[in-house]
Computed example of a mutant assay.
Amino acid sequence: MPLGLQTNFLDLIDQAVSALDTACSSPATYSQVQRLTTLLTTLLYYHHTARKAVPLTPLQQTAAELQRYKDDLKSRSNRSEHVTIKSFSKLSQNAQNLIGSMLALETREMLDDFSHLDLSKKSQFEALKRAVDRAQDQVAQSQGRPPLEYLDQFCKDITEFARDDLKIDVKVRNHHKGEPVTDFEHMLVIGFRIVDTAISYHGIVKRYHKAIKR
């Protein structure tokens, strides 16, 4: 496993165990941690095996760029520093054009260029975030979602684990901010992030409900 992938996966495992501890209202037991990490490791194994030697398509590359850009938006504390020309310029032309077109939709064509943004204004910063969300959704719809049976199985297994072992709420809902709220939703999102870093929370909710019905 490449070092970058290993580090990222360990970070996800740490986040998942933290959510598990919160769900248990105390440190989770060894068997509970083992069960959760086994589910996530199994998911990673099947995903890695399925993708081995398969190059990313242009759409997948754009999707990955958009997710990194979205993460950058969230990583800074000051709106005026959230996104710089430098970070935006690192995106491919496809990603830049897509964000620009979505920004025009969000602002009713008052803004369609990153350089016209005044990030010190909360309304414009929020419009940019929504534009990135829209861009992600459009890419996701364009590339479609492959029928990943192992992801469907993960959804069912983690639901059973949370419901029967942890005795916690396993309802998965869309939320206003487009982020997970409950401990179960957090654990579920981490699993999906292993498979697809670019999928939005709305996409996860939709995919989850389809998976558990199959």
Rank of each mutant, 00 (worst) to 15 (best):
E106Y: 05
P180C: 06
V170K: 00
L5I: 15
A53G: 11
A64I: 13
Y208W: 01
L148M: 05
R214D: 03
D169S: 02
H48G: 11
H82G: 11
Y150P: 07
A162Y: 00
A131I: 11
D164K: 04
V181C: 06
F192L: 02
G178D: 03
P180G: 07
D21T: 05
L39G: 06
L151Q: 03
Q93L: 09
K122Q: 08
F125W: 12
A211W: 00
Q136G: 09
Q153M: 06
A198M: 04
K90I: 07
D113K: 15
T29V: 04
D164S: 10
T7A: 15
E81F: 10
T37F: 10
P55V: 09
V195A: 03
S120L: 02
R193G: 04
L5T: 15
P146T: 02
Y46F: 13
A16Y: 08
F88P: 00
T38E: 09
T159L: 02
Q124T: 09
N174K: 05
P146D: 04
Y150M: 08
V172T: 06
H175A: 01
H116N: 10
R68Y: 13
D72R: 13
C155A: 04
I99N: 05
L40G: 10
G191A: 03
Y201E: 05
L20W: 00
A19G: 09
M187T: 05
F161G: 00
L40C: 13
F125L: 09
A28T: 06
Y45N: 11
I204V: 15
M1C: 12
V205Q: 06
Q32K: 09
L105K: 09
R163D: 01
P147N: 11
Y69F: 15
K90C: 09
S31W: 01
V205M: 03
F154P: 00
F125S: 04
R134M: 13
E65D: 11
G203M: 06
D183C: 14
D152L: 03
Q61T: 11
Y208I: 00
F114C: 00
P27E: 02
M110N: 14
A162K: 01
I99L: 07
R193S: 12
S31P: 02
V132C: 08
M1R: 15
G191N: 04
G191E: 00
D71S: 13
K213H: 10
F184E: 01
Q136P: 00
T41S: 14
S18A: 12
A95P: 07
